[in-house]
């Protein structure tokens, strides 16, 4: 019987830790979103100065993820509908504004606008990644502790 108790205790702890990991998912997704947006912005400014590839070609090389999907929509036809739940209302508006200006001007004006976005995006990326790291660690620990507490209560 002891081994069954140990197994159940282990499963409870594993499950609660997993729940903690899942709960932190939105912070990781947010970090990834801004990291991709920042990387794209850097690349786009370079493209504007040199290759001037159309958005569809840039989007085709974009790594998969929520930002990549929005970029593909923008490259295909329209300003995408930004619905990501992990973004705040203001962030959604900022991202929508970003896409609404993407491609809609000559290289001179686009370089000016998107170079100006670099600093803000870098700060956003750093903050989102920092938050993702700390929240992930916190939620994992909370999950683990919750599992342990549950096991102690049951036993």
């Amino acid at each position: 019987m002891t081994w069954i108790k140990l197994l159940i205790a282990g499963l409870i702890i594993a499950l609660s830790t997993l729940l903690g990991y899942v709960a932190a998912g939105r912070f990781r997704a947010r970090g990834k979103f801004f990291a991709q947006m920042c990387a794209f912005n850097e690349r786009f400014v370079n493209e504007l100065s040199y290759g001037r590839k159309p958005l569809s070609e840039i989007a085709a090389d974009q790594p998969s993820g929520d930002f990549g999907k929005l970029l593909s929509e923008a490259a295909a036809s329209r300003v995408p509908d930004v619905r990501q739940a992990y973004l705040t209302k203001e962030e959604k508006q900022d991202v929508t504004d970003y896409f609404s200006l993407l491609g809609r001007g000559d290289s001179y004006s686009q370089i000016g606008f998107f170079t100006g976005k670099k600093t803000a995006l870098s700060e956003k990326k750093a903050a989102a990644e920092k938050e993702a790291a700390s929240r992930s660690s916190l939620y994992l620990k909370l999950g683990l502790l919750a599992g342990l507490a549950l096991v102690i209560l049951i036993v």
């Binding site: 923008a74 490259a75 036809s77 491609g103 290289s107």
Partner: peptide
């Protein structure tokens, strides 16, 4: 026109 530019006006500005 925007669609014909591939939604990327900067990429065809010389032609425009």
């Amino acid at each position: 026109l925007f669609a014909a530019c591939g939604y990327s006006v900067y990429s065809v500005e010389e032609e425009l």
